[in-house]
Design a protein around this nucleic acid. Structure first.
Lengths: 215, 215, 215, 215
DNA sequence: GTTTAATCGAGACGGTACGTCGGGTCTTTGC
DNA sequence: GCAAAGACCCGACGTACCGTCTCGATTAAAC
C-alpha cells in the first residue's frame, strides 16, 4: 500500500524516488474520465493514454481499476463538508439533506453511484470509499445530532447510527435503486418523518419498542 | 356484421414459434451462475455454455447481460412477498424488516446488490428490476401502512412513499454502501425511529414542517 | 442436381409443383449480388433477403453457395460465344483473344476469377463451371484450330488441347495470379509465340521433341 | 565534428522488443494447418490455438487471414528454385516444367491454388505472394531464356514476359481451373508448341504479327 | 565519480469476453 | 408437397481491455 505513509522509518529507500508528476497526472486523468463517462468507459488503458503514464506505473501504485477510481474521486473531492449551523439542529439537517439531494441530482450523483457499485468488485476500494467519503460525512451529521440532543431538540437515548441511516439511507436508496427522483419535496417528507421520530418529546416510543422486543 | 378483419389478435405469427426449452434453460443457467459467482463471472458466454443455448439465441431475446441477469432473478423469485399480518401494523413492519435484513445477509443480498449495481449500466434492466422486484414489495408495505392508518396507529396525512423510503432505504443503504452490518439490533433501531415518526399522535411535526417550507 | 432438366420423366410429381418464380428470383438476385460485390459479400442470407425467397428454399435447390453462384452466372451468360470467322484461322484466334482479354479486364473478369476460386471449395460447382462455361469456349476454339489445320495454316499433328491451353492458359494465369495486366500488346505477344509454334511449316520441332523424349 | 545527432538509424525502438518465438510458432502452426486442410479450415482461431499465441498477437503482425497464409507459405518455401542446367536451354525448361507439374500434382499444388484464390480477397497478400513466390520463379526462367537467346537457340527479339506466360500460364490454368490433369504428356505437348514458337529460325512470325498490328 | 536500485515510458504478449455474421437445420403456417 | 418465416445451435470473426512481462532511459542516494 504505497499510498500509506503513516508508518515509515525516516530511512529514505535507495533508488529513484517516486515522482509526484506521474501520480498527479494519473489521478487527474482518472477523475476527468470518471466524470465524463462514469465507471463504464473508465479503463486503465484509457487513463494511461490520457495521462501519458504507462500502464505499468498505474498498476504499481493502485491495486485495481476500482481502487484508482476511488482514489481519483477522493483526491478531487473536498475532504470536509460545509455544514450549515443555525439555532436548530433539525433545520440544519433538513438544509443539508436538501443540498445533498441537489448535488446527487447532478453529475456527482452518477459518480458516487458508480463508485459504490464498483466497490462490490473490490473490497479494498469499497473500504477506502467508506473511510474517505462516507465516514467523514456521517461524522458531520453525528455532531449535529449530538448538538441537537444537548439542546434538547432530540431525545437523549437516540441511536445515532440508526438515525443517520434513517435520514441518509433513503437518499442513497433512491440514488442507487432509481425508484423515484431525489426531489426536494420528497427529501423534506423523509426528514419530517425521521426527525419527528427523533424528537425529545417522542413520548413512549422507546418504551413501546422495548416492550415489543420482550414478547 | 358477419366478419371483423380489422384486428386479428389471436393470430399466431409466421415461422417457427419460439421454443420454451431454450428460454427456460437460459434463465435457469443464468440464475445458477448469478447465485454462484455474482455479476462478476456472469457472462453471456458462460450462460450459453452452461445452458446449451447459442449466444445468438440469448442475444435475440435479452438486450444485455444486465437484462438477462434481472430476468433470471425475477424468474427465480416468488413474485409476491409473504407479509406477516397481526393486530399491529407497526409490528408487522418490524417483523418484515427483520426478515428482509436476514435474507439480505445471505446469498440473496449479494445478488440483489449486484443487480442494482448492474442496473446502472442498462436502464432497461434497472427499470425491469424496479417493476418486477422493488415495486411489488413497496406495494405490500404500502398496504400495511394504509392498514395502520385506518386502525389509527399512524397519522392520516402520512406521506406513504417517504415513509417506505425511510423504512427500507436504510436497509438498501447498508446493503449497497457496506457501511455497517444489517444486524437485527440495528434494524430495530431504525424501525423504532421511523415508526415513531409515523405515529398518529406525532404531534405538531407536520405543522412544523409545513411552516418551514413557507419561509 | 436440380439445374439439370434434360432427363425428366413426363410424370408430374404429387403436391405443389416447384414454382419457377422463386427459382428465377433467386438466380437473378444471386447474379446481381455476384456482379456487385463478387464472391465476398455473396451470401445465402443476402440472396434470400434480396430475392424474397427463404433460405430453406435455396438450400433445397442448390447444394452450396458456390453451386448457386455458378448457376446464377451460367444462367446470366450467353451459352455460346460469338466467334469471328475470316479467311485466316490465326487471325480469328488473335481477334478472339483480344476480345476475351478485353472482357476480362472488366467486371466479368472479376466474376470469372471469383467463380474459379470458389470452385476449389465445391468440386460440384467447379465441374458445373467447367462444363457450362469453360468447355463450350474450348470447343469453339478447337473448331477454329481444326479449320486452320484443314486450311494448311497449322500443322496436322497439332496437339489441340495443348494448343488451347497454351493460348488461353496465359490469359487465365494473369486473370488469376495477377502478375501483369491483360493488355492488348501482351495478348498479341503470347499469340505470336504460340501460333508460330502451331504453324504448318514449324519444321522439325515435333521430331526434335520426340527425339529428346527418347533420351 | 565530434558528434552527429541528426540521424540515428541503428536505434532500437522503445518498448519491449518483438519476441521471435511467437512469430515462428505462429508461422509454423499456420503452415501446418494450411498443408493439412487448405484455406478452408485455415482460421485465425485455429492458428492461435495450435501455436499457443493469442489472437491479438496474430492480428498485430499480420493484416488478414490471407496475409498470414501467404507469409507462412513463403517462410516454409525455399526462396530460390533449383533449376537444371544443361547444354540446351529448351531442355532445361522442359525439365523444369515437368518438375513443376509434378510438384503441383501433390500437396503443394493445392496450397498454391488456395493461396492464389485467397489473394483475391486481400490485395496485399496477393502482392506478397507474387513478389515472394511468383516473381523469383519467373526470374529464374527468364535467365534460362536469355541463356537460350545468347546460345542462338531462341530468336533474339523474343518477348520474354509473353514467353514465360505462354510456358507457365497453362500450368496454372490447369491447376486453378481444373479442366484437365497436369500430366507429363500434356506438359510436354505445351512445351513443344511454345518452344517451337520461340526458336531462332521461327521465320517470319514476328514480321507477320507486326504487319497485322498495323492494320 | 562510479555503482546501484528504483521509477517510468513503451509496447509485446497470452488471455477472456464481447457482440455480430453467416452457415446449415428444423419447425411451424399457409397455399 | 412446396414455399416463406423465423427459431435454433454453431463456429469464427475482429476488437477492447485485462494484467504481466521485458526492454531502454532516467534519476538520485549510497558507496
Amino acid at each position: 500500500m504505497p499510498t500509506d505513509t503513516t508508518t515509515c522509518p525516516p530511512r529514505r529507500p535507495r533508488g529513484r524516488p517516486r515522482g509526484n508528476e506521474a501520480r498527479v497526472a494519473v489521478l487527474e486523468a482518472a477523475y476527468a474520465l470518471l466524470a465524463e463517462s462514469g465507471m463504464a468507459g473508465f479503463t486503465i488503458e484509457g487513463v494511461a493514454a490520457r495521462s501519458g503514464a504507462a500502464k505499468t506505473t498505474i498498476y504499481r501504485w493502485w491495486a485495481s481499476r476500482e481502487a484508482l477510481a476511488v482514489a481519483a474521486f477522493l483526491a478531487a473531492t473536498v475532504p470536509r463538508i460545509a455544514f450549515p449551523k443555525s439555532d436548530s439542529a433539525a433545520d440544519d439537517i433538513r438544509a443539508q439533506m436538501r443540498r445533498l439531494a441537489s448535488v446527487y441530482r447532478g453529475k456527482t450523483g452518477r459518480v458516487v453511484r458508480d463508485l459504490i457499485a464498483a466497490g462490490h468488485g473490490d473490497s479494498g476500494a469499497a473500504a477506502a470509499f467508506v473511510e474517505g467519503y462516507v465516514r467523514p460525512r456521517r461524522e458531520a451529521v453525528r455532531e449535529v445530532l449530538l448538538r441537537g440532543i444537548e439542546a434538547g431538540e432530540f431525545r437523549a437515548d437516540l441511536d445515532l447510527d440508526a438515525a443517520i441511516d434513517a435520514l441518509y439511507g433513503p437518499v442513497f436508496y433512491r440514488l442507487l435503486v432509481g425508484y423515484g427522483p431525489l426531489s426536494q419535496a420528497w427529501t423534506e417528507g423523509v426528514a419530517e418523518i425521521v426527525l419527528e421520530g427523533c424528537r425529545a418529546d417522542a413520548g413512549s416510543a422507546s418504551a413501546r419498542a422495548k416492550h415489543d422486543r420482550k414478547r
